[in-house]
Simulated assay, not measured.
Amino acid sequence: MSDEAGEERRWRVPHGHVVLKAAATAAFALVALLSRDDRPFLLLTVVATVGLAALALRDVLAPVRLAADAEGVTVVAGYAARRRVPWPAVVAIRVDERRRLLLHTRLLEIETAGDLYLLSAYDLGEEVEDAAAELERLRTRADL
């Protein structure tokens, strides 16, 4: 972080996740090549390869999923577009936590009048509670 007036915080996809998705893409592509005689299995592996490649490409094109400074937040919207939201337009910052069967999910929610942005710990590279606290700190500092 820089000085208080120009303080900016960025949250990005961890480099290891990008590497893991790229490696999984390569592995599925290899399996697809090796199974080209089995049409149904080939179709399944090609779909998986394309899906993983799309996820890995998004991580390369938009590694910073969230940034915040004294003026507001910048979030990734859609596949890899960025949207700037000034603090006055942010209605709420909260953590949504859900437990179902063996799954436990936590998402950072940034709500505006017309949109809801959802980010996971995988998007942020840290726990969503920590990111929410930091966003509230920056938002409060901006109000001063």
Score class of each variant (00 low, 15 high):
126 E>V: 08
105 T>P: 06
71 E>W: 04
8 E>F: 01
4 E>L: 15
24 A>K: 03
40 P>M: 09
100 R>I: 14
13 V>T: 06
128 V>F: 02
84 R>E: 13
121 A>D: 04
5 A>V: 06
54 A>F: 04
74 T>Q: 01
28 F>Y: 11
75 V>F: 08
85 V>A: 08
17 H>D: 10
78 G>D: 07
108 L>N: 05
86 P>W: 05
73 V>W: 07
29 A>H: 03
68 A>E: 05
113 A>C: 11
95 V>L: 00
122 Y>I: 09
15 H>W: 14
69 D>L: 07
46 V>F: 05
7 E>H: 09
26 A>Y: 01
16 G>F: 11
133 A>P: 08
112 T>G: 08
47 V>N: 07
97 E>Q: 14
68 A>G: 10
91 V>N: 11
122 Y>R: 14
34 L>A: 13
21 K>W: 11
49 T>Y: 00
1 M>L: 09
103 L>H: 14
125 G>I: 01
83 R>E: 15
70 A>V: 03
65 R>I: 05
8 E>M: 13
61 L>R: 13
56 A>S: 01
8 E>H: 06
120 S>Y: 01
47 V>F: 08
66 L>I: 02
45 T>H: 01
35 S>L: 07
17 H>A: 13
89 A>Q: 08
99 R>D: 13
37 D>W: 12
124 L>K: 03
43 L>V: 15
72 G>P: 06
8 E>Y: 05
49 T>K: 08
109 E>W: 04
13 V>D: 01
43 L>E: 07
96 D>I: 11
41 F>W: 12
27 A>Y: 03
134 E>Y: 04
129 E>K: 06
80 A>V: 10
112 T>Q: 05
15 H>P: 10
88 P>K: 04
28 F>S: 09
2 S>V: 11
96 D>P: 04
132 A>V: 01
96 D>H: 12
38 D>P: 03
116 L>C: 14
42 L>W: 15
29 A>T: 13
74 T>E: 03
95 V>A: 07
33 L>N: 11
76 V>D: 06
117 Y>R: 00
15 H>T: 12
66 L>P: 02
13 V>Y: 00
1 M>A: 12
60 V>G: 10
90 V>L: 10
71 E>T: 14
11 W>A: 08
68 A>M: 06
86 P>Y: 05
129 E>L: 11
49 T>G: 04
127 E>S: 12
50 V>H: 06
7 E>V: 07
53 A>P: 02
45 T>G: 08
52 L>N: 00
44 L>S: 09
108 L>V: 09
46 V>W: 04
81 A>S: 14
93 I>K: 03
80 A>H: 00
70 A>H: 00
67 A>N: 04
118 L>A: 14
107 L>D: 10
60 V>N: 05
121 A>H: 07
96 D>T: 07
103 L>T: 14
84 R>S: 11
5 A>L: 02
91 V>S: 13
17 H>K: 12
22 A>E: 10
100 R>G: 15
124 L>W: 02
59 D>A: 15
80 A>T: 08
37 D>Q: 13
51 G>V: 03
69 D>Y: 04
144 L>P: 05
135 L>I: 06
70 A>K: 00
106 R>V: 02
28 F>D: 05
94 R>T: 12
30 L>G: 14
67 A>H: 07
71 E>S: 11
29 A>K: 00
114 G>D: 15
106 R>L: 10
130 D>I: 07
24 A>F: 06
68 A>H: 01
48 A>T: 15
28 F>C: 15
